[in-house]
């Protein structure tokens, strides 16, 4: 399934490296990535392909752990919710 990973937090080194490394280790393919600094806040949005439904919870929980470790806000959501709201 396609999912959107959003990472928000104070800018620091290693955010992109750590998040993408974790996704790589879990076998998650990154389809698109955009990153910007909004009012001093690091904001990264990734569109990823998670292989199987069962893998979703594992990836989500690993990213939650990483968020805690690095003091970031990380969210993983199926892309369907954004499509539903913003595409007819």
């Amino acid at each position: 399934m396609k999912a959107v990973v959003t990472v928000l937090g104070k800018d620091r080194t290693g955010i992109i490296a750590n998040v993408s490394n974790l996704l790589y280790q879990k076998g998650v393919n990154i389809l698109d990535i955009s990153q910007t600094i909004l009012s001093g806040m690091f904001t990264m949005i990734m569109l990823v392909e998670v292989g199987q439904d069962a893998q979703y919870d594992e990836v989500r929980s690993a990213l939650m752990d990483l968020a805690k470790e690095m003091g970031l806000e990380i969210r993983v959501q199926r892309s369907d919710i954004f499509d539903a709201m913003h595409r007819i």
């Binding site: 955009s34 949005i45 569109l47 969210r75 954004f82 913003h86």
Partner: peptide
């Protein structure tokens, strides 16, 4: 592809 503003609007 969704744009960042739309994604951030949903999160907000």
């Amino acid at each position: 592809m969704l744009n960042s503003n739309e994604i951030l609007q949903t999160l907000r």
